[in-house]
């Protein structure tokens, strides 16, 4: 009897002794994650980052792998299919907005259908655009461990995919063009670039009101006079808001690496930057929602830029190309 009691006590002690080790297996210590901070010049505001998805080296690396992985879609496409680094993360065929400095955006897509942070945009891309089948990621030999490392749990969910993509895309920062280096007094622009900058940043060309220096977008929705009748996709922001005053308004695109992002405008109607400059010079159409900035008297007959002015403006726009961004190995396919 005494022996039985002793055995029982010993068994109980053994059981309690094992419990901590069982708990350890079920809930492993969280992986050590290494924080990442974005660097940007002082003439640019702080980015619109989600506090709920802090950037880490591990999360960014996972997002980068996903960005280039056709497993995300069900038709063989990856994000990088339409967002080619050599073209400033857009392509030469579609009118896809470039993936550049999106961490500073509060609205996404041409008509601003998605608002919030990059995480919200990626929720849309993963859930609606790609309709990502996460069972493929869960069945993959390496993804589950990577997701567990970053998010502390599996199975992989669409939300986790969106968060990882958002982390990588927040690092697609382009702020080292010739023009940036000019602003930082590291180099001098050429005479033609400087004349173009004057046209851009004065009432002469009046580009600055919408393409604000620094981010080269004001993040707002504007009707820049492409059309005087609005049907289908050309209705722009109106399709989201239903507000007639939003008819024909589109998000102001950022002009960074613009020389590489042809075709231009929301429907890709202009094939070259020269076409775009000529549109502003002589092709703006009047409509009730034409942006007030573009209704000034001196705009009535177009900008009236000379051939030299147009060449200068083009030279300035080309100074917004950021070679480091285009070749940054941290942004390339892993």
């Amino acid at each position: 009897m005494k022996t039985k009691v002793l055995l029982l006590l010993f068994s109980l002690a053994l059981l309690f002794g094992m419990m901590p080790s069982c708990k350890k297996e079920a809930d492993p210590a969280p992986a050590v994650l290494h924080p990442v901070s974005l660097s940007y010049p002082n003439y640019v505001p702080a980015p619109n980052l989600s506090p709920d998805n802090p950037l880490t080296e591990e999360g960014v690396a996972l997002g980068r792998r996903l960005y280039y992985d056709p497993m995300l879609s069900n038709d063989g496409r990856a994000c990088a299919t339409c967002h080619n680094q050599l073209r400033g993360f857009t392509d030469s065929v579609s009118n896809a907005l470039p993936h550049v400095n999106l961490a500073w955006n509060r609205f996404f897509l041409w008509n601003g259908k998605i608002s919030g942070t990059l995480e919200d945009a990626m929720d849309f891309e993963v859930g609606e655009f790609f309709q990502t089948d996460v069972s493929k990621l869960n069945a993959d030999p390496s993804y589950p461990a990577l997701f567990r490392q970053v998010f502390g749990e599996t199975p992989v969910t669409r939300r986790q995919v969106a968060l990882a993509l958002a982390q990588f895309m927040a690092t697609q920062v382009s702020m080292n063009s010739r023009f940036d280096r000019y602003l930082r007094k590291e180099l001098m622009l050429s005479d033609t670039e400087l004349r173009g900058f004057y046209i851009f940043n004065s009432e002469r060309g009046d580009c600055f009101h919408c393409h604000s220096l620094g981010l080269f977008t004001d993040g707002q929705f504007r009707n820049n006079g492409l059309d005087d009748q609005f049907v289908g996709v050309n209705q722009g922001r109106f399709l989201v808001s239903g507000n007639p005053s939003d008819m024909g308004r589109f998000k102001t695109p950022a002009l960074r690496n613009v020389a590489l992002s042809a075709p231009f405008m929301h429907d890709g109607r202009y094939k070259t930057l020269e076409d775009v400059i000529e549109f502003y010079n002589s092709g703006v159409r009047q409509s009730p929602t034409l942006d007030p900035i573009m209704t000034k008297p001196s705009f009535q007959n177009g900008l009236q830029l000379s051939a030299d002015d147009k060449a200068d403006l083009l030279a300035f726009l080309k100074s917004l190309t950021d070679e480091d961004f285009l070749s940054n190995p941290k942004l390339s396919a892993p």
């Binding site: 505001p45 702080a46 940043n201 604000s212 993040g219």
Partner: peptide, 28 residues
């Protein structure tokens, strides 16, 4: 002034003296 996403478009061009737009009142 500290830049932020709200007032990112308030700069007044250097060629016109620099600084900031004091006011933008726009409509139709």
């Amino acid at each position: 002034l500290p830049a932020n996403l709200e007032n990112v478009n308030m700069a007044w061009p250097e060629s016109m003296g620099g600084g900031y737009h004091y006011m933008k009142l726009e409509g139709y």
